[in-house]
Simulated scan of single mutants.
Amino acid sequence: MGKLVMGIAVMLLAGLSLGAQSATWSITYPRSLDDTDLRNEYPVALLTLALEKTGVKYRLLPSDRIMLQGKALRQLRENREVNVVWSMTDSQRERDLLPIRIPIAKGLIGWRVFLVTEQKLPRFSMITRKSDLLTLAPIQGEEWPDTKILQANGFNVFTVPTYQEAFSVLASNRGDFFPRSVIEVFQEMKTQNLAREIILEQDLALYYPTAMYFFVNKGNQVMARLLETGLRRAIEDGSFDALFFASYEETLKQLALDKRKVFVLENPLLPERTPLQDTQLWYQPSQNLLQ
């Protein structure tokens, strides 16, 4: 493996017009909604770790303006404002952009728990089968891959144009539940100033196989190799897993996925090259899966 890593490093050196020792990589990612939005903390920490593992000089900065995911992906495709974005993958995104196929959250983006209102909570206690859950309307963003996944599995999805609007739709009971990934939900409950009636449902979850990747512009092959080299080195020396568990171990304990009814959904958007067979890249928090 050492020879392979060395070979990749040589390729990177050859790709730098100014030379690896003098060049400084300027890497810009999408700025979050505000300083209280903590969802960027782990991806930025992992990006920093990967860059440190390569030994290159770099500047890692947020974009000048706030950029929601759909806008960030469009800007990345056009090679404007940002040059790296992290996002859940699907076939279209992998056609438009260049993915680094290492799931940065080890697949946890596909594990979903539910934000609901107290008024509707009793309906969820009666759910024992997937068909019961299909009678309820989940809330999702118009451009999110999750929306198509849920629709393909038979859900009548209530779509919203913006992330923030999903919370107001939930609070007004126009939709029944807002599925959130296990790596997002607690931070959102702390930072989104949720209406008092919005709570976390305690007994159910969804799972669909998917990954969140770092993406770069299709023309930026050298940066893709750089980031993959750093991530691979972090996996090999254990620092990737150390950061992952430091970030999410307590969250996973609190959510107790092993005690929930977990309904498995198919993901028709999952690209064929998703590295599902590489077990070191994934975390499996529960075996209590229901079809």
Rank of each mutant, 00 (worst) to 15 (best):
Arg74Asn: 09
Asp146His: 03
Asn40Trp: 01
Leu136Met: 12
Gln277Arg: 15
Met212Tyr: 00
Ser63Arg: 04
Val10Cys: 00
Pro271Gly: 08
Leu60His: 08
Ser125Gln: 13
Phe240Gly: 03
Asn288Tyr: 00
Ile66Trp: 06
Ser87Tyr: 02
Lys53Asn: 07
Phe215Asn: 03
Asn267Ile: 08
Asp146Ser: 08
Glu78Cys: 00
Thr135Gln: 13
Leu170Ala: 07
Arg39Glu: 03
Lys120Gly: 05
Lys106Asn: 05
Asn79Met: 11
Ile109Glu: 09
Asn217Ile: 05
Val56Asp: 01
Tyr42Val: 07
Val84Glu: 01
Thr147Phe: 03
Glu201Ser: 08
Pro285Thr: 13
Gln277Phe: 09
Lys120Ser: 11
Gly230Asp: 04
Pro103Met: 14
Ser63His: 09
Leu4Thr: 13
Asn156Asp: 13
Thr159Tyr: 04
Met67Ile: 11
Glu94Arg: 02
Ser32Trp: 04
Ser87Pro: 08
Leu38Arg: 12
Ser168Phe: 08
Arg74Lys: 10
Ser181Ala: 15
Gln277Cys: 00
Gln277Leu: 14
Val84Tyr: 02
Glu52Asn: 15
Ala14Gly: 13
Thr54Phe: 00
Lys53Ser: 04
Ala246Asp: 14
Lys120Asp: 12
Gly19Thr: 09
Glu165Phe: 02
Thr54Asn: 04
Val157Cys: 06
Ala234Gln: 07
Leu46Ser: 05
Leu108Gly: 08
Pro103Ser: 15
Val169Ile: 13
Gln119Ile: 05
Ile149Tyr: 03
Leu290His: 06
Leu49Phe: 01
Thr147Gln: 10
Ser247Lys: 12
Thr159Gly: 01
Ile198Phe: 04
Asp96Thr: 03
Phe244Leu: 10
Ile235Tyr: 14
Tyr213Gln: 07
Leu276Cys: 09
Leu13Tyr: 07
Ile199Ala: 09
Glu118Gly: 14
Ser63Trp: 06
Ile183Ala: 02
Phe124Met: 06
Leu276Gln: 06
Leu108Trp: 05
Leu281Arg: 08
Trp25Leu: 14
Ile149Phe: 04
Ala20Ser: 13
Asp132Val: 06
Leu206Tyr: 04
Leu49Pro: 04
Asn153Leu: 12
Val222Ile: 15
Asp34Lys: 00
Ala137Trp: 01
Pro285Glu: 08
Phe177Arg: 06
Arg180Val: 07
Phe240Asp: 03
Thr117Asn: 09
Arg225Ala: 14
Ile104Asp: 07
Phe155Ser: 11
Gln75Met: 15
Ala171Asp: 14
Arg123Gly: 01
Gly219Asn: 15
Arg129His: 12
Gln119Lys: 15
Pro275Glu: 12
Met6Leu: 09
Asp64Ile: 11
Trp86Gly: 12
Met223Pro: 08
Leu115Glu: 03
Ile198Asp: 09
Ala205Gly: 09
Asn156Ile: 12
Val84Met: 03
Tyr163Lys: 08
Glu78Met: 11
Leu255His: 04
Leu97Thr: 03
Met212Val: 11
Val222Cys: 00
Pro179Asp: 14
Thr274His: 06
Pro103Ala: 15
Pro122Lys: 11
Val113Leu: 11
Phe177Pro: 00
Asn156His: 14
Lys71Leu: 13
Asp146Leu: 05
Asn267Cys: 10
Val160Trp: 01
